[in-house]
Nucleic acid binder design. Structure first.
Lengths: 221, 221
DNA sequence: ACTTATGCTGGACGGATATCCAGTATTGAA
DNA sequence: TTCAATACTGGATATCCGTCCAGCATAAGT
């Protein structure tokens, strides 16, 4: 790991500070203003150095898109205001996961119409670090009763991961998303319903896996 | 408090989701793209509505400067509130619920020894407004399989409420807490295990009900 | 029929922003 | 000295972005 100059560390700390306080990444001009630079280019040079050294990333050309890259044991929390921690959990973060009642066919991004709400949960309880493609799905019917998933449950689905045999997956079948168990048997994949009243599904062509279940939430009704 | 239309709530949820996942506020055009608007003005109209209703603020003219305005529901859940939460939900609050692996006999307050961790969740998902006597309980065994509660699940228990017939309750039996279904039949209360391999329990003296299940959380293992 | 609220399209403007180019000054190593 | 790395200035540009204007459509209430 390349090391940072003192100035670069100051820049990085400033970015981190602004993010934690204002929940907003500073622009290059705001960085320049804070350090009394007369040109945004001075800030850019440092940011570029931080990028090339792997401490920052961003979306090229996009405003306020700087993101600090997490790295394991870099315990520099110099001015962290952690005195406010009470019974809460340390090192945990709450994320917002959108919940859909149903997912129409097509690209996974086409889900905006059906959004029902959202769930806030800490990532430790969730069990994964959610991505932009993590979402909740309201369970309808009892086809997964054998896995103790019942009507009304909300399952948290992570899109874009390879399912292992036995995982519960959200699969696209006949233009609708249903919950099934993904089974890999002798090299062949099929979907098993965890209820004898429902048939198993052997795919004709290819499996349309929308995502893998990572967690479940149930409310008393 | 002015209310939000469904569309406005979807917009707000999306902004919150993006902030919690990417630590970056979406631009109006990114909002428009997600909702398949053909004009950034559609997103602007919603954002303006959210601003005037007090759910959002921003720095005028600045890119990605939307910020969600925190609004607690007023209730004092002081011990449970985690003030380090990055983005709170409107009209809602994220609370910290302690989780125990087992509950020893005695006063419910004497449980600090057995604490295993805690869960952070918003109260809308939880379904109740938690009190100081709300706690999580790790499920051991499969005596409640008939209610789709399996080993490893965490049930959220609310202490001190009167159970209704059919509720799942945490009951104190022989110095141990087990999960059972509370049944009231012809004026007599007893506890039913939702698994034929376990016996029902007819109380000799009085029922020791520790609390009623209000929610359930499951992680993939 | 008339109004109002909501939701969206399409275009446009100006300021904000990231990025590039050229140049200066300082420091330290070869 | 010479060279390279670091730190910064000043200016320029293409694009990104918030915002405004005008208009259309639908639905609900009066």
């Amino acid at each position: 790991m390349k090391e940072l100059t003192r100035r670069q560390k100051q820049i990085l700390d400033f970015i981190q500070h602004r993010q934690s306080i204002e929940k907003l990444t500073p622009t290059l001009r705001e960085i320049a203003a804070h350090f009394r630079f007369h040109s945004p280019n001075a800030a850019l040079a440092h940011v570029q150095a931080l990028r090339s050294k792997g401490f920052l990333k961003n979306l090229p050309g996009r405003a306020r898109s700087l993101q600090i890259i997490e790295r394991g044991s870099g315990g520099s929390v110099s001015w962290a205001r952690d005195s406010s921690v009470r019974a809460g959990k340390l090192n945990s973060q709450v994320v917002s996961v959108p919940v859909y009642g149903a997912i129409p066919a097509g690209r996974p991004a086409d889900r905006t119409q059906e959004q029902e709400g959202c769930i806030l949960m800490d990532i430790d309880t969730l069990g994964i670090k959610p991505t932009a493609r993590t979402f909740g799905l309201k369970v309808k019917g009892d086809s997964m009763i054998g896995k103790s998933i019942v009507d009304g449950d909300t399952v948290i689905i992570e899109h874009g991961v390879q399912p292992r045999s036995g995982d519960v997956v959200a699969a696209l079948i006949d233009g609708q998303v249903t919950l099934k168990t993904f089974v890999l048997q002798q090299g062949k994949a099929y979907l098993r319903a965890e209820n004898p009243r429902y048939p198993n599904l052997i795919p004709q062509e290819e499996l349309q896996i929308q995502g893998v279940m990572v967690a479940l939430v149930r409310r008393r009704r």
